[in-house]
Design a protein around this nucleic acid. Structure first.
Lengths: 341, 341
DNA sequence: CTAGACATGAGGTACGTTCCTCATTTACCG
DNA sequence: CGGTAAATGAGGAACGTACCTCATGTCTAG
């Protein structure tokens, strides 16, 4: 038997097409009893609305905005590229997309950008930003206006966002810890470098990393995190110091942004390839470093998947459809030289 | 400006809707010159056919069959479950799906199954089977009948299949080699066990594994592959032998099916957790073993991704659409205890 | 010059849905 | 019981595309 249509429902329920339509689209003017009759028929026949036909009739447009940080990070660049690519594909059917870039380190700019969004001409927003009370408020405003809101890559757990698309950073840190311990042989000191420990992402990763180090590799020592604040010179001096004065250091964990300066500094110091270096995010730089054996591993999330997922989830929320969790779960990927493709 | 429609094309090209339709659907009875005019208009306006509207009008059905091996393997089970799950989702819009199971170790059965397919009532076939000349011929027949054919999980490179959806097993073997060498500390012997070395998948994995072992970990010794032919007793005796007589063995690589008996045997022998054991395919069994630290790592491919990809690719070939490579590339995933979710 | 083949146009119906309007029926209240 | 409001029915147009028929226009060969 073919898929049932609204006409079949009407016949089955013994009502007219118009009534079925009123029920399905939650329009007023139908008795409870009739609503029940229609719903029963829907159940019985297993009717599912043809979203594409519905979108056609309704001339549906999904107007989405991606609010992304703009900075020296290659991560954002790859993300934007992936967005462009996805936009040209089937997934972006009936989607009108706009990207808003905000300076990464300006907490006020992000709020201004969110406040400036014209909620009347928008159906959904994807946000990648650190969480602040102001950001939470701005998101509450978007939700009140009926928009779908998803957090991308970095979660906004205390905001009213509908969904988070990205990895669990605690697990990511734990994964790195396990890998570091195993690769380094369970002995020696590990240095953790990061751009800044102020972000929750960094904190969570560090937390997970330490947990595993402590429980699984008690013979190893994890040194305090060193913050480099986007400053290549600072990074160079940190690395030089390690190379000269800390012979016990066997591993290096680059927790966030700023992989490029780290790799440069290591190469400069002539220690590239001798330490177990693990970094986050697969970018052209880290890719190359993996190939040269300068990085032992990269912990990453697939940005293509990330943006496609964001688009699908935004649509689902706009249509009040359920989302296919298994498809939207972003995996913590471990990339070595050999599964780099 | 909104997306152009066929009407816009007709206006732009200065022809009627009927002619535009004839050109777009490659129907006969249009002069070369007119075809060029229409195509020029399509180019100029950047027209893209609305596949969903087209499918609606055409009452399109995608009738697909998945031909899958039936055996003691948990892999096939997870694959079928994923297929069921995907079938309920958007991806399977207008798809009518059937699964055909064939005994895994009967090369004739697969050919019989492929020959039995009614090509008139079918639009595409996804096949997971070892390649033989007869299978190649059967696929050639399907292609001649105009069907879309994809190989899933295990490639059929010399057949006429349109596409392969799965991982590169040479790279998978290389990845495992790198991981094994790193985890085991570059010293000692490694045992390789597999159900059978007759499959190309096994051969390629072994090849890749050996390549990396030789180049990156020359101090390690890889022992000859041991085949267990689906026989738990044989597996148990192999493991017992290793535990008792081969103290130099530090690592174990389970290359294909039969992880369950291996893990059972290891537990039996009391050596679970002491060797670096790496296996393929994430299943309930291997998942549990990771959690118990009995497996150091699992090399796998996401079966959900696999089947969704197969469905998308089959559709694309049916519609002669281009496929979005980045989305269809199946990654070689490294799963540790910590990124297991 | 004309028959016949071929090219093109005009217009309609359909797909499954949405969203109208207008008419009719039903239920409830006093 | 009539009056009124609410519920329902009937039907149509539209979305973008496919596919059909029939009429008309144009070219070419004889």
């Amino acid at each position: 038997m073919n898929k049932p249509t609204v006409h079949d429902i009407a016949k089955e329920a013994g009502v007219s097409l118009a009534t079925v339509d009123r029920v399905l689209n939650a329009r007023p003017g139908v008795r409870e009893k009739t609503i029940a009759k229609v719903n029963a028929a829907v159940e019985r026949l297993g009717y599912v609305r043809d979203t594409y036909a519905a979108n056609l009739a309704r001339q549906r447009q999904y107007r989405f905005v991606f609010v992304l940080p703009e900075g020296p990070s290659q991560f954002t660049e790859t993300l934007k590229a992936a967005l462009q690519e996805a936009y040209a594909s089937q997934i972006a059917d009936r989607v009108v997309l706009r990207t808003v870039s905000v300076p990464a380190n300006d907490p006020h700019a992000i709020v201004r950008a969110l406040r400036a969004l014209d909620t009347d001409r928008l159906d959904g927003v994807a946000i990648m930003a650190p969480e602040t009370p102001q950001v939470r408020d701005a998101i509450a405003r978007l939700k009140e206006a009926g928009l779908a809101v998803v957090a991308v890559a970095t979660d906004l757990p205390n905001s009213k966002r509908d969904y988070f698309i990205g990895i669990n950073n605690l697990s990511a840190g734990r994964t790195t810890g396990l890998l570091m311990g195993r690769f380094a042989g369970g002995q020696g000191e590990v240095l953790v470098v990061t751009n800044s420990m102020r972000s929750r992402d960094s904190l969570e990763r560090r937390l997970g990393f330490d947990e595993v180090m402590k429980s699984d590799f008690p013979a190893m020592t994890v040194l305090p995190s060193i913050e480099t604040y986007d400053d290549p010179a600072r990074m160079a001096s940190v690395i030089a110091d390690v190379v000269e004065n800390r012979p016990g250091v066997v591993g290096l964990y680059s927790m966030g942004l700023g992989n490029a300066p780290l790799l440069d500094a290591l190469r400069e110091a002539g220690r590239a390839g001798q330490l177990v270096v693990i970094a986050h995010e697969l970018t052209p730089k880290t890719r190359e470093a993996l190939q040269r054996n300068e990085l032992a591993a990269v912990i990453t999330q697939n940005v293509g998947h990330l943006v496609r997922s964001a688009l699908r989830v935004l649509r689902a929320f706009c249509d009040e459809q359920s989302i296919f969790e298994a498809q939207e779960r972003i995996r913590i990927e471990i990339v070595l030289r050999e599964n780099l493709y």
